[in-house]
C-alpha cells in the first residue's frame, strides 16, 4: 500500500477517534484509558510476525519481547477494564 493511502487511513481514523472520544463521559475516563491501552495491544500482530519469522538472533529476540509486552497490554488491559466497568452500576 502506498504512503498516501496509509496517511489517508491514519488521518480519517484520527478524526473518527476525536468524534468518538469526546462523547465519553468523565466518569468513564479511567476505563477509557485502560481500554485504549488494551486495544493498542494490537501491536501483537506485528510482534507475532517478527517472533514467528524464524529470523533468529536479534529479530527473534525483539519479536519475543514484543510478543510478551503486547500480550500483557491486551490481556491485562481488557481484563482490568472489564473489572472496573463491572463496578459502574446505577441503583
Amino acid at each position: 500500500m502506498d504512503i498516501i493511502a496509509q496517511l489517508t487511513v491514519f488521518v480519517l481514523a484520527v478524526f473518527l477517534g476525536v468524534e468518538l472520544i469526546t462523547k465519553v463521559p468523565p466518569t468513564l475516563h479511567t476505563p477509557l484509558m485502560s481500554g485504549t491501552n488494551a486495544i493498542s495491544g494490537i501491536t501483537i500482530v506485528g510482534a507475532l510476525m517478527a517472533a514467528g519469522s524464524g529470523g533468529g538472533g536479534l529479530v527473534s529476540f525483539f519479536g519475543f519481547i514484543a510478543v510478551i509486552l503486547a500480550t500483557i497490554n491486551a490481556v491485562g488491559g481488557f481484563m482490568v477494564t472489564n473489572r472496573m466497568l463491572a463496578m459502574f452500576k446505577r441503583k
Partner: peptide, 26 residues
Amino acid sequence: ASAGFLMDNNALIITGALVGASGLIL
C-alpha cells in the same frame, strides 16, 4: 500507528490513531 506505517498494516494504523486521539483529548 507509526509501527503500522512501518509494517504496512492498516489495523495498527487505525488503532494507533484512535488511541493517539484519545490520549490527546484527555
